[in-house]
């Protein structure tokens, strides 16, 4: 839906990408947003995508190794982060 900006769901980035979370998809409900925030996936956070397979999406966020389901990862929109 947002073809002009470079926001892409976390699940779309290749392994090893360093990305910054921009916002959540509008389809994410309040509880889901709250959950993502509690997990440390707030807008502005830097995340390393370790592997984004068809199942879970593996991330490094705030010092932890976290796996979230693809459905959840699709709701988190991020942009590539250049060092």
């Amino acid at each position: 839906m947002c073809s002009l900006c470079s926001h892409r769901p976390l699940s779309d980035f290749p392994s090893g990408s360093r990305v910054r979370i921009e916002r959540f998809c509008d389809c994410a409900g309040g509880n889901c947003r709250c959950r993502l925030c509690a997990l440390g996936l707030t807008p502005g956070t830097l995340v390393t995508v370790d592997s984004a397979g068809p199942g879970g999406c593996r991330l490094k966020v705030r010092g932890a190794d976290l796996v979230i389901g693809r459905g959840m990862a699709e709701k988190v929109l991020a942009v590539p982060f250049a060092q």
């Binding site: 997990l39 190794d65 796996v67 979230i68 389901g69 459905g71 959840m72």
Partner: peptide, 11 residues
């Protein structure tokens, strides 16, 4: 439908 998966992988 299925629910999302969340899990921490300890070192």
């Amino acid at each position: 439908p299925s629910t999302p998966f969340v899990m921490e992988l300890p070192p």
